[in-house]
């Protein structure tokens, strides 16, 4: 194990390894694709993983941190420190096209690019969201708060199915 560990000990190699750690609530995208893992550094013998929360109160954050530590431990890396940063704030604009496509296939409508009006509490949301099941854009927002902090509830008028959207923030 020691040889394979030292082979992996570049920050890029570790990041690649962490790309295997899935979001516990949406197990089709990784914590790296989600943008929660911001950076990996090595100082002396310590691996420092910088993470940022999606939402301030996301209960999955602790699990993600534990999963990151566990993944590195699995590969013999015991000296790991998680560092939390809030700035710059997490945004869904960091999700790659590939990650968005994975969400859609999983049944969650991916977020659009964050429009300016979105950050205005006095304007109604006018975003067009396509149903991930039938692709119709004849959909209706049911609630801006879904089963997790990062999702909203929608209803598809075409196929009459409820679905969730990974909301823009």
């Amino acid at each position: 194990m020691t040889t394979s560990t030292s082979m992996r000990l570049s920050p890029e190699g570790i990041l690649e390894l962490l790309n295997e750690v899935q979001d516990p609530e949406i197990p089709v995208i990784s914590v790296v694709e989600l943008g929660v893992v911001r950076k990996v550094e090595i100082e002396a013998d310590q691996i420092i993983v910088t993470m940022t929360p999606t939402y301030s109160g996301c209960p999955a954050m602790r699990v993600m941190e534990q999963d990151v530590v566990a993944k590195l431990l699995e590969h013999g890396m015991t000296n790991v420190r998680i560092q939390t940063v809030l700035s710059p704030p997490w945004t869904t604009d960091w999700l790659s096209d590939e990650a968005r496509e994975k969400l859609r296939k999983y049944g969650i409508a991916p977020p659009g690019k964050v429009p300016k009006a979105h950050l205005d509490p006095f304007r109604k949301k006018s975003e067009i969201v396509a149903c991930p099941l039938c692709e119709s854009t004849d959909t209706k927002l049911t609630s801006e708060f879904g089963s997790t902090a990062c999702k909203a509830f929608y209803h598809c008028n075409a196929c009459s199915q409820p679905f969730e959207q990974f909301k823009c923030i």
């Binding site: 301030s56 704030p89 109604k124 923030i169």
Partner: peptide, 15 residues
């Protein structure tokens, strides 16, 4: 930094 992060959430709450 806390304010920048929280403002986005507060926007959703107020709406």
């Amino acid at each position: 930094a806390i304010a920048v992060k929280s403002l986005r959430e507060a926007t959703y709450h107020l709406r």
